[in-house]
Amino acid sequence: MLKIENLHVSIKGREILKGVNLEVNAGEVHAIMGPNGTGKSTLASVIAGKDGYDVTEGNIIYKGKNLMDLSIEDRAREGIFIGFQYPVEIPGVSIANFMRTALNEIRQYRGLDPLNGAQFLKLMNEKKKVVELTEKLSNRSVNEGFSGGEKKRNEIFQMAMLEPTLSILDETDSGLDIDALRIVANGVNQLKSPDNATIVITHYQRLLDYIVPDVVHVLFDGKIVKTGPKELALELEKRGYDWIKEEYEQRKLS
């Protein structure tokens, strides 16, 4: 589904990603872990298409298409979803209006008829249950005045509404208490299917107790330096990242 080959990315001339290789197939959950400032969020932003990131080398192929040829919105319409670490507040735009516009533009792109008001409301009520979102929240402006937990629940609610094929959840667990974490993780698990894939970016093992990955990658110094089964996350939790750094430095020397 997603194939990243030798991806080099710079921000204002500074190289952040230095040759990332990653392949994700339908039905898989991948975790990308690593210390701060190693390029995890950059990877998510490049896949989303955010301005200011220069791809200097390499490719991102998604469902056989070169992602770099697609606009931000077309990537979303092709089924890519980014769950943000810090979702932006948009005063005055209600969640309902926001989601209806998004859903209908995606449907139009795919040659489907727009949903009418009743169909949309029915869908929204159904999907709200995924993250136990209350009526009150969905009538409010997007993320305005939401707590950290509400913002993340709203992200997963949007994911449920848009039914993406590839979801990238960037530090979805940051700032969540244990109840919110459980709700968010349950939401993600409910949405899992053999046809879609999820990339979970996180610092901590904690989230992976709930969302169990098939593969764990460690991103360090702009590269994926280690890949392993879900037990790798537990090892990282126990031993920290220093041994990864040492291994990496040694490999570099030899």
Binding site: S71, A76, I90, V93, A102
Partner: peptide, 26 residues
């Protein structure tokens, strides 16, 4: 707000519609 525009676009909303949504909200 560029960040808000970006957020809306990552949900599949075209740039023109996203601008209109933000202007209306304003």
């Amino acid at each position: 707000d560029d960040e808000a525009l970006y957020y809306l676009r990552t949900r599949g909303i075209g740039e023109r519609s996203a601008r209109k949504l933000l202007m209306f909200a304003f």
